[in-house]
Every structure is written in structure tokens, then in C-alpha cells.
Amino acid sequence: MNSSKITFLTTCRWFLCAMIVLSTNQHTRAAELFLSSLRLGFTIDTISGVDVNDARAAQELWLRTALQNMNKNNEPVDVQITVYSDLSLLINAVKEHELDAVTLLPLEYLSLQEDVSLIPIITSYSGDSDGEHYVVLTHRENNIQTIEQLQSRNIIVGTRGDKKVPQLWLDTMLLEKSLPETKAFFKSVKYMRKTTQAILPVFFKQVDACLVPKTDFETAIKLNPQLSVGLQIIAESPGFKSTMTCLRSDFHDQHGSHLTQAMETINQTEQGKQFFTLFRVSRILRFEEVHLDNIKNLLQKNQTLSQKSAHRQIEGQ
């Protein structure tokens, strides 16, 4: 082989190497800046008890941090948060491509999944690995051991976030026992945003029962062990996930995997952990269909029992 051929081959090799390096750089640059803006919406029910502006500001910060962490060069990300007073308005916004992503309560998602094509990517919740459990508490000295004994008595529902799921669970439980639904069964039902505002009146025997998240009750016991002496659990729900983040299907095709990864890994940094703590999120998981099993079962059971109850009422008339 003569020297000119060697030179030619060497040049080709260098060119090939240079191409590989350049293409790798292009790829890396693309990965460094995968998303420059995101429009997220949620309904007012998702943030029950929290001021809309505060929730919007907090959500914006949370999302911007997650996305900026994914953009390796820390380029700013334009995040727009819109809060909707009604679920139908949110559905329209998704359909009109005004939103890329939505944060929903599981019940909201189940109600709209047939109207609009959304792909859930993340579920977040507090409580144990199963989700948030709800418990009905009574005072031991009042001798109320079953839910039936609470008929015509007072109850306080103290939940920080979703009110609908505990309400639905309570209704279903009453229907299972062939009892009237919450409003008719109890003498009065009060809703409180803070768990202590529900637990303490029961402890001081001012109210007969309360419905609170189990983890909150357990924490309250850790802070004040006397509560465990005075209070008892008479009913406990299965675990439910708190919220779900979904992407518009075409947006998901483009950015789904990156966004999922960004949100999944946010708590791997100290800053992300702090945001988790500050935003009161215990766990964040990649969405799986199984996460909706409990709520689907509850919904189904509630519908079946409601129908039966309606039939009974008609037959009775």
C-alpha cells in the first residue's frame, strides 16, 4: 500500500471519528435542553384549602426546579400554571392545546379519561406505600365501637387535600351497611382543613367522631401520646393516591420520558428533598394502572350500592 492510500485512509478514519464525536455532542446538547416551556393546569379541588395564588406560585417553583435540573446547562424554563374552577374548563383547555400537562385528583381523572386523551405519568401521595388511608375516630369513653353507633351524631371531616375520596369512602361504607348516606346519617358534618381541628374536638368529647388521614392521626399521637389513650379507630379505608400528573397525548409522545424522569428524580438532590418536604409530598411514583385500583373499586362499589339503595327506596315507596 503506497503512502497516499495510507494518508487517505487515515483521513477517513479521522473524519469518521470527528463525525462520531460531533454527533455525540449534538445528542448531548439535545439532552441538555429538552424542554424550554411547560403549561400546566389543575382544578381548584386539587388544592382544597390553599390559596390559589399561593398554590400557583408553589407549583410553578416546583416544576421549574424539576425541569431546570434536567436541563444540564440550567437554562431557565418558562412555566405557566393555570387554575380552573371547573373540570370542564380544564378539559376544553387540553383539547384546545392550551395546556401541555394537568394535575388531577384520581376521581377527576377517572371522570374525564374518556373525554380527552391524557396519559398519566406520575402519582404523588403521602401516607404509606399503599397511599393515604382514612380512619374514623371516636373517644374510647363514649363506647362507640361501630359506624352504626354514630347515627344521628356529629362528625368532623378533617382532610388537608382531597375531600371527595374520604367522603365517597364514608358514603360507600354506610351504603354497605344499608345505612343512609353521610348527610342523612349524621346529625351534622363539618369540614376542617387541619387535622388537629378534627381530632382535638373528639378527644375533648365536643364531637362524637372524626374522619382524618391515618398518617396524620399517627403523627398526632407521636406528638401527643395521650391521644392514643383517648381515641380509637373504628373504621379504616384502603390506601388512595393523592394526585396524578398527566400529559396531553401528543405532548407525551415528544416529552413524556424526559418529564417523567425529571419528576421522578427531583427528590434525589437536597434541594428536591426540601421541596418534597415543603410541599408535603411523601412519595412520588411513575404511574401504573394498579395505582387506581382502590379508587376504581370504591367508585364501582359505590355506584352498585347506590343503585341498590335507589331500588330499595323505589320499592319501599
Binding site: 390559596d51 395564588n53 399561593d54 406560585a57 410553578e60 438532590t269 437536597e270 434541594q271 426540601q274 421541596f275
Partner: peptide
């Protein structure tokens, strides 16, 4: 670690003071 935690809190405080409900 302390600085990162406090910075995250500061970011939230800033965000709430500038765009929040005014509390």
C-alpha cells in the same frame, strides 16, 4: 446541606411573596 435546604425555602418564600396570596 443546610444552605441548600434554606435556599429552597428562600426560593419558595420569594415565589410566594412575589406571586402568592400576600400572606
Amino acid at each position: 446541606k443546610t444552605h441548600t435546604r434554606l435556599s429552597a425555602t428562600l426560593e419558595l418564600t420569594e415565589s410566594l411573596y412575589k406571586k402568592g396570596a400576600g400572606k
